[in-house]
Write a protein that binds this DNA or RNA. Structure first.
Lengths: 208, 208
DNA sequence: ACCTGAACACCGTTCAAGT
DNA sequence: ACCTGAACACCGTTCAAGT
């Protein structure tokens, strides 16, 4: 647990990556509201002020956590079916977000602030552009897909936590996990189908 | 400004609606981070603890603010073109969110927590179902549209604030307002087009 | 290069008591 | 029905100084 390849056991000294890792584990175990600078410092056996040597403020720490979550994105596989690829990218992103408690919320708010990398958006755009769409279209569509995914998974994670807390209440309904995953695929299908329709506008009355 | 139709000028006494209104105006003038219970109390000339007679906690206050924002949704007009109606509903929602600073973020996080009304989702679903889609499909599609709108407008408002702060920086590019509004319409078009394609799957290879 | 100590300026929330 | 007063248990951030 401690990377103490030092002389004794004292003088802990953390790297930026240590801090990010510890933050990620607090996030996963206690959730975003309990991920405070003071608690993080306590876990690292350090004064809160020490964290500000590694990060300018809490928001940049959260951006690093967000990037860390997105780094676990399973590698892309480019087949000859761009729609299948887009679905695969979307699922990979959903899985990465679901891998940590409140993952979607952290990534969502980080990206909304214009912080964090754009690996996710770029991979979605890459899959789409393999469908023969130009860069502008691919980028705009990727953003639409990303907004949908972040919103959907945020709600999903919120429900997961709510139902894990209030054990009783509604019998969870016959539709919840199943329906949530179904809703996810459906949303991606709509956006992919919309792209397909976009390039052959003769089919239906597509102007509005 | 004061609804003091009392004997003198003392004993202010607020209603839940007064509190919500005051919160909304702090939100609009100072933004979500500065909308604190203590500041709200100060504006109302009241102790912070007084707010807890009107609301159980800050989150329910924010839910009331969110509802308040969505109440300003301009009324729906049902024509014979469901796609035009959906676009109109989407624009109405965007305008309502843009009407207050950080409006999208407040509504987004409130809805994510399962709080607040579902007027927005229902109106989107109503427009979609006029296209002849069953209730399940309409509901799922409405949620997808709503996620896109909240994500898009959140980012839009973030950029608005960022550029109003850092006056200089990038020359704003030839694409920003224009591109943002264009991206919005494009997203709605994709989802509407996806729905149209969904009911006539023979057109292209739609299975995945 | 990384951290301590001490402080500043705040938070949300509870609860007994007042009118 | 609506509010005060006082307290509890916290926050994020800064900054001089230490090693």
């Amino acid at each position: 647990m401690d990377n103490s390849e030092d002389t004794g056991t004292r003088v802990i000294r953390h790297t930026r990556e240590d801090v990010t890792r510890a933050a990620l584990s607090i996030l996963d175990e206690l959730g975003l509201p309990d991920l405070t600078m003071r608690r993080l410092a306590a876990v690292l056996n350090v004064q809160p002020s020490a964290l500000y040597w590694h990060f300018a403020n809490k928001q940049s720490l959260l951006a690093a956590v967000s990037d860390s979550i997105l780094e676990q994105l399973r590698p892309a596989t480019a087949t000859d079916d761009w729609r299948a690829d887009l679905h695969a990218e979307a699922r990979a992103l959903r899985d990465a977000l679901l891998a940590y408690r409140d993952g979607a919320e952290v990534v969502s708010s980080t990206l909304a602030l214009g912080l964090g990398g754009d690996q996710a958006e770029e991979r979605l755009a890459a899959a789409i552009s393999r469908g023969g769409f130009d860069e502008r279209i691919s980028a705009a569509a990727a953003r639409a897909v990303l907004h949908f995914i972040l919103g959907h998974v945020s709600r999903e994670q919120q429900h997961l936590q709510a139902s894990s807390l209030g054990a009783a209440r509604e019998p969870a309904g016959p539709l919840d996990d199943e329906d949530s995953a179904g809703g996810f695929e459906f949303g991606i299908t709509l956006l992919a189908g919309g792209l397909e329709a976009y390039r052959m506008p003769g089919v239906a009355s597509l102007r509005t």
